[in-house]
């Protein structure tokens, strides 16, 4: 591969990501919930309510969990709903006839999720620091940002699986059905320790729970399970979800279903 073709391929990745980002940024139905909801939730529950307690623990705990929540949104919706809708509209099919590498398309969505996630967590961090007096060691701020952003991997894998197995508007509904209960049951809004034991067991099956525990580990507010356990569960779940997604695409194609006889329109 010559330098020119390398530069050319690199440019595809950059532009695909750029326009993916611009595209969803200009889509109020996507941008407002994913950018503002975690910030508003954190402002209300973490800063306004949490700051009334003597301890700064509640705002600090929620700083970590709402950040995970904030990264989960763009990852799930970008892949789950976004991918299903782009497949339905045929854009994905059209792009697959061009020299665009499939990876550019997928990585663009991951990059978009990271960009949105970074914006959300920066907002949450600033709210927590200046609104609720959250104080962390510098390495903790950076590590927290890093670990939380690494959550795009399992969440994008989950979104990809949802997107592969659902279509259009249905994908939005399914994504919401995954998103909100998982956030709740994983302790992203309130610590799961207040839940009944059975629900706490459910949390152990959810990637968001393990992601949140890893984030809480940085500020030493996790439940005390092993780091390796969380990383292993997330790794296995991500691979399993990617396999589920791959199977879904193989079954449905990238949009070719619309070419069945009688399906043309």
């Amino acid at each position: 591969m010559t330098a020119a073709t390398r530069a050319h391929r690199w440019r595809i990745y950059v532009l695909e990501a750029r326009y993916q980002f611009l595209m969803v940024l200009r889509e109020p139905a996507f941008a407002i919930p994913t950018l503002l909801f975690p910030l508003i939730f954190y402002l209300f529950f973490g800063v306004v309510l949490g700051a009334r307690s003597f301890s700064a623990a509640a705002p600090t705990y929620m700083l970590a969990t709402y950040s995970v929540f904030g990264v989960m949104g763009p990852s799930l919706f970008g892949f789950g709903a976004g991918l299903a809708m782009e497949r339905d509209s045929g854009v994905l099919l059209l792009k697959r006839t061009t020299p665009m590498p499939a990876a550019a398309y997928l990585l663009a969505k991951v990059a978009m999720a990271i960009a949105f996630g970074a914006a959300v967590i920066l907002g949450i961090f600033l709210l927590g620091a200046h609104g609720a007096g959250v104080v962390l060691y510098r390495w903790q701020w950076f590590a927290l940002a890093g670990v939380v952003l690494a959550g795009v991997i399992p969440f994008c894998a989950l979104g990809l699986a949802v997107g592969a197995w659902s279509r259009g508007r249905g994908a939005v509904a399914i994504t919401n059905l995954v998103f909100l209960p998982m956030a709740m049951l994983s302790g992203l809004w309130i610590p799961i320790t207040i839940f009944p034991a059975a629900l706490q067991d459910v949390a152990n099956a959810l990637p968001a729970y393990h992601q949140a525990q890893l984030a809480l580990k940085i500020i030493d507010m996790d439940g005390g399970q092993a780091t390796l356990l969380h990383v292993a569960v997330l790794g296995v779940q991500s691979l399993a979800l990617l396999a589920v997604a791959a199977f879904g695409f193989r079954r449905a194609g990238t949009g070719a279903v619309s070419m069945r006889p009688g399906g043309t329109s």
Partner: peptide, 18 residues
């Protein structure tokens, strides 16, 4: 991208420490 990443890191670096 570079400016945004630098801004993100710079903003993180301004956050309060004990």
């Amino acid at each position: 991208l570079a400016v945004a990443a630098a801004g993100f890191i710079a903003a993180l670096a301004t956050l309060p420490v004990p």
